[in-house]
């Protein structure tokens, strides 16, 4: 008999004569305490994210690339990983070229194996879009894809995420239902609620454990 057969067999024997418990999920419990007036969602997200050292900026769809340049220059960063095929990538590239920025723009356009060393040691910052935000927990949601792969938001020490204000949901349950996640998830979904951190030594909080040391969220108020 296989391990699978033995395990399932033992479990079925133990359940013989019993009926499964009914599904008693109560969505009120995970939504009612976490509802906000539309005007309060951003403030809630912002205060929670800032409480865990996220830098949040409110800007508009026509001026955010300028802010990105400013943030990179302030930190003296030499390069930025971005997605030239995406709409926000094109906007960023157009601005950086028009204003002759000193920052080198890098694209994640080959399998990770081809440039792992460079990605791990030389890329200083990255910029990705988000699928939306969650006010209840101060979270941005990422669905990595071909153009913004999984490691893009993890390996570079600084991660800049673009969030449209209109895509901030009250809570995770609402977002999941509104977008029908259960119908099909991509390879990887990430809820990100701040820069990487640890409190493993004496419970002292230190940022920049293994992921980005800094998370910067740019909220596009008009989008």
């Amino acid at each position: 008999m296989s391990a699978r057969g033995n395990i399932l067999g033992k479990l079925r024997d133990s359940l013989a004569g019993t009926t499964p418990r009914p599904d008693e999920f109560d969505e009120q419990l995970v939504t009612r305490p976490w509802r906000y007036a539309p005007g309060d969602r951003l403030a809630r997200l912002r205060s929670l994210m800032e409480a865990v050292h996220t830098e949040v900026h409110q800007c508009r769809s026509d001026n955010w690339p300028e802010l990105v340049a400013e943030l990179l220059n302030k930190r003296n960063l030499a390069n930025l990983l971005f997605a030239p095929a995406k709409e926000h990538g094109r906007a960023l590239q157009a601005y950086f070229e028009a204003t002759e920025q000193n920052v080198e723009l890098l694209a994640y356009d080959q399998p990770v194996e081809a440039w792992k060393e460079e990605l791990f040691w030389n890329v200083e910052a990255s910029l990705t879009g988000t699928l939306g935000g969650i006010a209840a927990t101060g979270t941005v949601v990422l669905w990595p894809d071909r153009y913004e792969p999984r490691l893009m938001s993890l390996v570079p020490p600084v991660h800049i995420a673009l969030l449209k204000a209109s895509e901030i949901h009250d809570n995770l349950y609402d977002m999941m239902v509104a977008q029908d996640w259960a119908a099909g998830l991509p390879t990887n979904v990430l809820l990100v609620s701040g820069p990487s951190k640890t409190a493993d030594i004496e419970q002292v909080l230190a940022y920049g454990a293994h992921g980005p040391r800094e998370l910067i969220v740019l909220v596009l108020e008009d989008a």
């Binding site: 929670l48 209840a136 927990t137 390879t187 990430l190 809820l191 990100v192 609620s193 951190k197 992921g211």
Partner: peptide, 10 residues
Amino acid sequence: PITTYVNLIS
């Protein structure tokens, strides 16, 4: 309220 990362792998 939530951990820094919640990672859903499918």
